[in-house]
Structure formats: C-alpha cells, structure tokens
Design a protein around this nucleic acid. Structure first.
Lengths: 189, 189
DNA sequence: GTATCAAACTAACAATTGTTAGTTTTGTTT
DNA sequence: AAACAAAACTAACAATTGTTAGTTTGATAC
C-alpha cells in the first residue's frame, strides 16, 4: 500500500460522490464531510472544484486515447482489434469505475480548454472505432449491418460497464471478458 | 397541432435543458429564459422544480412498466419477446428522447416517495427482462452465456438510444429496428 | 365598459454555493 | 526546545439558488 497523497484521496472521494449524485449536486461541504474535514481545508490541497473534475476526466480520456492508438496501429485483424477494445474498457473500468461515471455524465461541466480537449479526444476515439468496423466490413470480417448501429451498440455497452461491474464481484474478470466478447460479437440468439 | 398546455411546454423545455446539463445544473432562471419569461412566472404553472422532474421521469417509467408487462404476459417465444422489448425502447425514444435523459441520469434527484416508486419499477423491469432471458436459456432459444452479461449488455444499448438516435435522422426507424435487433441478437462478427 | 381570469411581472427572502483570508494545531526536523 | 511545514481550523464574502407575495397586463365574456 503506497500512501496516496492527500490530494489524490480527495479526488478519489470526489469521484465516488460525483458518481452518486453528479458533479453539480455535490458541494464542497459534502466532499469535506466525506473526508472528515471542513470545506475550507480542501483548498490546502486543491485549487478548485473544477480542478478535481478535470483531473478525473482528462486522465481517463488520455488513457483511452493511448490505448486506442495502440490498437489502431497494430496489425491484427478486425475481430482481434474489437476484442482489444473490449479489453481496454474492462481494464480501465476495473481500475477506476468511479472516475468513469464523471467521464460519462459530467464531461459537459468541464471549462473551456479542457472541454475542447476532451471533445477532441472523444471524437477521435469514436472515429477510430468506426474506421475499424468499416474496414472489417469491407474485408468481410464483419456482418453487413449499419456501421453506426454496430459502433453505437458496442460502445454503449462498454461505456456503461462502470455502472454494472462493481456490483458483479462474483464474476471473474476473465469470464467477464470472454462472455462480453461473445455477446457483443456473436449475439445472444 | 393540438395546442400544448403551458405547463407541458415548460416540462418539454426543461427536459431539453436537463438533457444538456443535468437537473442540478439547470436553474429556474435558465428554464425561464428558455421560455422567454421570468423565473417567478413559471410558478403560475408548476408547483416546484421537483414536480417537473418527477412528471418527466415517473411518466416514462410507467410507460416502460406497462409495455414490459404486456410483453411478459404474451405467449410469444423468447426471441419475439426480446424483439418486442427492443421495439418498446425505440418507440419511447422516438417519442420522448429528451425525457429519457432525465430518467437515465437524474432519477436519483427524485424525492422520497417518487424515488422509491421509481426504483421499484426499475427493479421489476430488470427482473422481468432477466426472467425472459433465463427462460430462453433453459428452453435453448438463447446461447449459454452469463445471463447478467446478456441482460446488461442489451439494456445498456437500449437505455443509451436517447443519446444517439436524435443525431441519426437519416436512418429510417424501421431499418433501425431491424439492424438493432440483428446486432443485439446475432452479433456483429 | 366592466368584470374575469390566466399569465406575466417586480421585488424580495432565506438558504446555500465556491472560495478567500487569516489563524491555530499537529507532527517532524534541527 | 525551537523552528518549520503541512494541514487543519474559524469566520466571512459575494453570488446564486428555489421560491413567495403582491401587482400589472392582456385577452375574452358579459
């Protein structure tokens, strides 16, 4: 157990509260109470409420960007790439499910520069995803359904993992990966 | 064009704002500005901000409850039942995508009684969904993957439709239904 | 033209918000 | 024990929040 910095403790506590009620509904006094201190004391460690949010979201977005770039630039086939994307989402979710709630639901409360930066990363991530599916379709590695529907459907499931996985502790992470890949790629029927 | 009551106009405008920023981040002054009036004037039509939220969410939740009950009590087979659930979600989404944002993201801001009522409906909806999948699995109509994963995966996609569909106007609703059913039931690979 | 009624308005409220300034406590290092 | 830095505290601020009270406007019915 390496000791976490006080700042990181605050950010982790904030992520939990943001997950439960959303960024706007969590006050600095709520956060302070969760930390067992007074609201003003938080400012010995952080600069602003906004800084907490951007630290949570931008860090995660960059993780996805790095992961996706590796997958796109690999020479694996389409199915393997899709499997790797599923892997990426499961890994990030296991490591920081609370933070993903903010990324999914509170990104619009980022301020100017970080908001633009985030939206750019998200756009590129989705474009990369779409390109993988499109190429798979051209090569006949994927069924000829509407590309947008396939991308949306898969991404919806992966994005929502954060809500669901923490409650399914009995499911081993390898079984999760295997069945998730099966369900998304081969369907249920 | 039947004229909508002023109250309903306010609720519709609120749903759009709630979708963009979430319930907590939307002020009564924001809502008033969107309506072209002053905040105090809203109270000639509604009782409270909370009333707006509960009207949006409870109405939609009841729609899903009614729809799901019809499906569960029908004598169709598992695949047909799943198709009907997909249909239900697409229909509701087409009719009120904005309201679904609140149902998905702001239900936790409902107050005591309505919160309990909502959570009960959601629980029963998910239980019904799970039972359909379980029975389909027993009868061999569905592949033997983890039930929770199948339910979660399908429901994630259907719940997120509200975010995605309004931007895909070029896709005909019948094609959407057909390909959505294909992707969810047969997979992409 | 006067009464009626819905729907807007102005003005204000008490509570809550994020944040700052300045001070005290706590624990460690000299 | 003296000095120091980290991290807590109290007290307060200006702005914003949902909401109320009381008033005015504008259209319709008599």
């Amino acid at each position: 157990m390496r000791p976490e910095s006080r700042k990181q403790e605050i950010i982790n506590a904030a992520a939990i509260l943001f997950k439960e009620k959303g960024y706007s509904a969590v006050t600095m006094r709520d956060l302070a109470k969760a930390m067992g201190i007074k609201a003003a004391s938080l400012y010995n460690h952080i600069q602003s409420k906004q800084e907490i949010l951007s630290t949570i979201i931008i860090g995660l977005a960059e993780e996805f960007t790095v992961g996706m770039n590796k997958i796109v630039n690999s020479d694996e086939n389409t199915i393997q790439k899709l499997e790797n994307i599923i892997d990426l989402h499961i890994d990030v979710t296991l490591r920081n499910a609370d933070g993903l709630a903010s990324l999914n639901n509170d990104w619009m409360h980022l301020e100017e520069d970080n908001l633009q930066y985030f939206e750019k990363m998200r756009q590129e991530y989705e474009d990369n995803f779409r390109d993988i599916v499109k190429k798979g379709l051209e090569k006949g590695e994927i069924k000829p359904y509407n590309v947008e529907i396939m991308v949306f459907s898969t991404l919806s499931t992966l994005r929502t993992l954060y809500l669901w996985y923490p409650e399914q502790k009995e499911i081993d992470s390898d079984i999760l990966k295997r069945d998730m890949i099966s369900v998304l790629l081969k369907g249920v029927a």
